[in-house]
């Protein structure tokens, strides 16, 4: 008999009557509204304050990666913060992405040894490793993902996919006016304001690279170590 014969018991009957469906929608929507009134979680930073510790986290990773070839691109992105299915416009999840080049992404150094180096480094700092997996694809390529959470809510993620990237996220933080976001020069060999420095959307009048070159962006920062969360200064004014 053909392989595409009858399968297990079908559920072709309507799964729910109109009354049942509408009653469910009515009940769940009330629940959703109720939960949506909850207060958002406390966060350690505002959006504007988050960039410096996130950039410092990337710089800290670069420090422990041997024979570091340099990144090719840096992105600043924002992910929606939703609460009970509703995006909260007052909050955002700041995400920094640093990508290696296509050529470097194919090397064993970047795909394998860096995963091991970061696992060891993050473990030594007491970070919680939340993901450590490998996936062999049909093409034979093996993709790797290594993630860790810091106690200050910062999420670190090294993903060796087709392109290998370091991603650092702030978690949900209160949204800042974009004019309050100060430029922080990239780490890992990317030229400030150059082709690979893709943060121009935050600086519509041009990336203030002169300011960046004059000041050490990480003078007031350090990597978080163990259970001690990153201590942000009261103000970054004059420091970056």
């Amino acid at each position: 008999m053909n392989d595409r014969g009858p399968r297990a018991r079908p559920s072709s009957r309507l799964s729910a009557s109109l009354v049942a469906v509408t009653a469910m929608f009515a009940a769940t929507s009330c629940a959703a509204i109720g939960e949506a009134m909850d207060s958002p979680p406390e966060s350690q930073y505002t959006q504007a304050e988050a960039y410096a510790p996130l950039e410092a986290a990337v710089a800290d990773m670069v420090e422990v990666l041997p024979d570091f070839p340099g990144f090719e691109r840096r992105l600043w992105r924002e992910l929606a913060c939703s609460h009970n299915g509703v995006d909260d416009p007052e909050y955002t999840n700041v995400e920094l992405v640093y990508e290696f080049s296509v050529e470097d992404s194919a090397t064993e150094l970047v795909r394998e040894r860096y995963v091991d180096a970061l696992r060891e480094h993050w473990t030594s700092l007491g970070y919680e490793i939340t993901q450590d997996q490998r996936q062999e694809l049909a093409s034979g390529r093996v993709d790797r993902d290594l993630s860790a959470d810091r106690e200050d809510g910062v999420h670190l993620w090294y993903s060796a996919w087709g392109l290998v990237a370091v991603t650092v996220q702030s978690g949900c933080v209160p949204v800042s006016d974009h004019s309050d976001i100060e430029y922080i020069p990239p780490t890992g060999g990317i030229e400030p304001g150059g082709e690979g420095d893709l943060v121009g959307d935050y600086f519509p009048d041009g990336i203030p690279t002169d300011q960046a070159a004059a000041v050490d962006p990480f003078a007031a920062t350090r990597a978080a170590s163990g259970p001690v969360p990153f201590e942000s200064p009261d103000s970054y004014e004059g420091q970056i």
């Binding site: 399968r7 018991r9 079908p10 309507l14 729910a16 049942a20």
Partner: peptide, 19 residues
């Protein structure tokens, strides 16, 4: 997901019988 209870347009595609 609430949708699993409201497959009003035919068989649930995530069910085994859909194939």
């Amino acid at each position: 997901d609430v949708i699993q209870y409201t497959t009003v347009h035919g068989t649930d595609p995530a069910s085994e019988s859909f194939g």
